[in-house]
Structures are given as structure tokens and as C-alpha cells.
Nucleic acid binder design. Structure first.
Lengths: 201, 201
DNA sequence: TTAAATTAGATACGGCCGTATCTTATTGAC
DNA sequence: GTCAATAAGATACGGCCGTATCTAATTTAA
């Protein structure tokens, strides 16, 4: 029974490679995953992989987008800025849970060297360049301003991006985003910065 | 006149290597600098380098500490928390100026993969493990509390480390730390977070 | 001065990167 | 069905990493 080896092509091949990449990611982690290793596991050659993705980071992001079960961020609308922020942090924690700290760090480091980073968070959704966390934060601010919780909705990019930065910092220095951390970040940093009175006052 | 090749050893060799590393860093930048390249430039072999530093990041940090002309952070004491913070940001900007954004990013990325990062900023001073930016920030808070500018001096680590995080963010996303950015960070983030009334109120 | 301890230097290794080149299977247009 | 276009597969390359091994120079202790 000689195996009839038909040559895979296009989407079928891509899927097989992403499956292999995803499996390797679970087995060995981000750092230990290699392009050659994935190619071998998918019974193809790295030439084929390089035709599809420029480097390990993009390959892993593609695999995560396909199999990671991350559905993207949703704009929370809970009635107060504080609970909106907490909901957002909860989504971030869930994202990290699916991804894994080690993978997140590795991706971060790799992208850093290639002069990017802005996005990265929701870029698990791939394409759609400017789809960073600020696209989620801005509506929260709009709602809060409409309710009169904060005096205005337009803030400098630096502030709108703060939630994302703080998340990255947590992962880097603490490798997790537990509930207490989320409370502290919201109550002691985000709300004061946007001039919202914490609901505890 | 045959060159009498005496074999360098110890500190003399170390210095020669660091000089070569520093030169390569200026010439080619961090990413393009290689251990083998530095070894060759210093007319020795990489074996010798690996006996002294575990990786490129540590080698470059050592070279920077020796030749970078960075003298370390100094605790500012200007009379108000706002101007203290601004002075600190100024020192950070000067540090970045000496280092170079590309090098900073590269170091950041490399260290990230090796599960560190906490320090890194003042670790240009090497040794002395816990010598992070928070060692500079805490005195500022002590002084401000003593003056009554803020209600208390003890804050969670997360807040004390904020200046360092924000610096990293600036470098990553904006590749510079101009004066306007420093004002915005201090007035719109740091002072609100610590509950200090900005001097503009 | 000689012997022992260090440490520089030379070399080689396996591993992976990213690219280039060439062959061969598969597809799709006609 | 034939042929041209496309894409997979196979291989090889130079470059660098980090480690291991061996030698020979230099230092130090005696």
C-alpha cells in the first residue's frame, strides 16, 4: 500500500502549517518554536513558510488567530467609566490567559526589534492596521463624557493608550493580571488620570 | 621588524574588547553588532567574550557603562514635585540621548526574552541588582509628602514605577522624549496619579 | 627557577536563520 | 488534452549563535 502522496497546496497547506505551529507552540513554547521545526512537523520545508509569513512572530500570530479562540475585544458599556475600565481589563486578562505569558513576551520582544509594537494587542485579529486598544478605549471615554463623569472625551493619544501600556507592563514585570491588579490600575491610575471620581469617593 | 605579539590578558584584554564593542555600536548599531564581529575587531575570539559576558546585551551594557558617559541618575530636589518629576524626565531624556533609541530598543527586546527588565534603566551602572528607577522616585515622593503636596509618601510599586514604564513606552512608540512629552506625562499622568495639584491650577 | 594554575587562542560542532536556486507536481486557461 | 503559469519541494549557502575541546602562553606560588 504505497502512500499516494498528493502534494498539498494553497489554503490546505496553510492550514496544515498553522496546525503544526499551534501544536508546537503548546508543546515547546514560543522561544523553542522554530520555523524549521514547524516546517518539519508539517512535513514541508521552510521555504514554503517564508513564502507566507516573514518571521516567527507573524507565523505565531497567524496560528493564534486561527486556533487561539480569541474573539477580539468588545467595547464594554456598563454604565460607569470605572466598571467599563474593569471590564476592559477583564477582557485583557482573558486574552493573556489564552495566549500565555511566555508567548506574549516573546512576541513583544520580536516585534520590538522590528520597530513596531503599536498594535500587537488586537493584531491577533490580523490585518486592519490601526486597530489598537485605543479603538476600544475611546468609546468608553465618549460614553463617560456624555454621562458627565469626565469633563471631556478628547484626550491625548498618550492617555488613551495608557490601558495598553499598563497591560504590557504587568505582563513584563508580573507575568499575570489578577483581579487586584486590575482594581489598582483602574482606581489608582486610570480614573485619576481622566479626572473621574472613583465611585468609592 | 616582526611584531612582538604579547598575549593580552585580564583587564587589558577586557578593555580592548569593550573598546571594540563600543566602536562597533557606533558604526553599525545594536542590531548589526555581533559577538563574533566584536571578537574579530578586538583581534581575539568569541570564546574569550563568552567567558566575560553571557550575551550581546550584557556586553553592550558593559561597553556603555565604560564609554557611554552616563553618570547615573541623581535625585532631584527642586522644591516641588512637579519640577522634580520634570527634572527626572530630563535626566531620562539625556540618558536616551547618550544611548540611542535603536540600542535601547534592542536591549529591551533582548532582555525581555531573558525574563528580566525590572532594572535595565540604571543598570547601565551595572551590578547593584535593585537599583531601578523607583530608587530615585521614592525620595521625590518623600519630599513632596513632607511639604504637604501629597497626602502620603507610600504608594504601591505599580505607581512608583510609573515614570520608568512611561519612559519605555515613549521610546517604543515615539523614539524620543521631547520636552512637550515630558510636560504632558508629568502634568497629565504623574501628578494626577499621586494626587498632587498641578502648579497650573 | 620551576611547577602549577590560569586563561587566551584556535578550532570545530550542531542548530537555526533567511535567501537563492532549481526541479517537479498541480492547476487552470485555451 | 496541451501548455503555460503557479506553487511546492529539495537543496545548498553564508552568517551567527552558544558550547566544547584542545593548545600554548602567561602568571603565581613555592
Amino acid at each position: 500500500m504505497a502512500e499516494k502522496k498528493t502534494r498539498r497546496r494553497g489554503p490546505a497547506l496553510t492550514t496544515a502549517i498553522l496546525e503544526a505551529a499551534w501544536a508546537q507552540l503548546q508543546e515547546k513554547g514560543y522561544q523553542a518554536l522554530t520555523i524549521e521545526g514547524v516546517a518539519a512537523a508539517a512535513s514541508t520545508t521552510k521555504t514554503v513558510l517564508y513564502r507566507r509569513w516573514p518571521d516567527k512572530a507573524h507565523l505565531v500570530i497567524a496560528a493564534f488567530a486561527r486556533f487561539g479562540g480569541f474573539t477580539g475585544y468588545v467595547v464594554p458599556d456598563t454604565g460607569s467609566l470605572r466598571t467599563d475600565f474593569l471590564a476592559l481589563m477583564g477582557q485583557m486578562a482573558a486574552f493573556l490567559d489564552k495566549l500565555q505569558d511566555e508567548t506574549f513576551r516573546g512576541l513583544l520582544a520580536d516585534r520590538l526589534q522590528h520597530l513596531e509594537l503599536d498594535n500587537l494587542l488586537t493584531q491577533a485579529n490580523d490585518h486592519d492596521p490601526d486597530h489598537g486598544i485605543q479603538k476600544i478605549v475611546q468609546p468608553l471615554l465618549d460614553h463617560a463624557a456624555a454621562r458627565g463623569e469626565i469633563t471631556h472625551a478628547q484626550w491625548p493619544d498618550r492617555l488613551v493608550n495608557l490601558p495598553g501600556i499598563l497591560l504590557i507592563n504587568e505582563v513584563i514585570t508580573r507575568q499575570a493580571l489578577p483581579l487586584e491588579a486590575r482594581y489598582e490600575i483602574v482606581d489608582q491610575i486610570l480614573l485619576p488620570v481622566f479626572g473621574a471620581t472613583s465611585s468609592r469617593d
